[in-house]
């Protein structure tokens, strides 16, 4: 039974803290998708998200001895990644991916079902909202992207942000409120 229940992540963390790069590599492979998409929410471009998430893993490896094994690895890594992304945003102007590079199926669905909604076509509304997202602060944008586009569960968001579930929803509401204002500013 023990073998079935055994979580290899704890072993990888123990080995990585002792300097085992291969074990750290397994942790990286386990979390690379999640890390990339978190960075994409902050930075908005494939190259920057790839660079930031990899750089943050390298920083995490250098600081593995400081990691408290009783915590979740990704929660700790998220704090490193967030700081790295915010530093990148401070240092250079980020060019978000154009709306046309969002998931092709969505685009296709809109093209076949492109009805008017008020004064704008639905695809235009999507483009305006996407543009408005980039007028928000990085934390607001990342929160909305994480919840709505990446469908991150509330419990995971609460853990990453280190706040209660109710606070996540409150923060989301305030972020959505600012998004709505940004959308109004663009119309």
């Amino acid at each position: 039974m023990d073998d079935v229940d055994h979580n290899p992540e704890a072993d990888w963390i123990r080995l990585a803290r002792a300097g085992d790069k291969e074990a750290f590599g397994k942790l990286v492979r386990l979390y690379m998708h999640q890390a990339y998409y978190v960075a994409l929410g902050f930075l908005g471009s494939h190259e920057d998200a790839l660079d930031a998430s990899q750089e943050a893993f390298a920083k995490a490896y250098g600081a593995m001895k400081k990691f408290d094994p009783s915590r979740r690895f990704f929660t700790w890594y998220y704090a490193i990644l967030r700081n790295h992304c915010l530093n990148m945003l401070r240092r250079k102007s980020i060019r978000p991916i154009p709306f046309s590079e969002l998931q092709p199926e969505i685009q296709a669905r809109q093209a076949s079902d492109d009805q008017t909604d008020g004064f704008l076509y639905r695809s235009e509304i999507h483009a305006v909202v996407w543009k408005a997202l980039w007028k928000l602060g990085a934390d607001d944008r990342q929160l909305i992207v994480a919840r709505d586009i990446l469908e991150t569960p509330y419990s995971v968001l609460a853990e990453l942000l280190d706040v209660p579930l109710g606070t996540v929803m409150s923060r989301l509401y305030l972020a959505r409120r600012r998004l709505r204002s940004a959308v109004e500013g663009l119309l």
Binding site: G25, M32, Y36, Y37, L40, H46, L102, V129, I149
Partner: peptide
């Protein structure tokens, strides 16, 4: 409702094959 209908395009599969190599090079 609009943001929930959005989705990111998936990066090419080679991105993930090369990912650890990129981290290793940084180490």
């Amino acid at each position: 409702e609009v943001t929930m209908a959005m989705n990111f395009k998936k990066p090419p599969e080679e991105t993930w094959d090369r990912y650890w190599g990129g981290v290793y090079a940084r180490l």
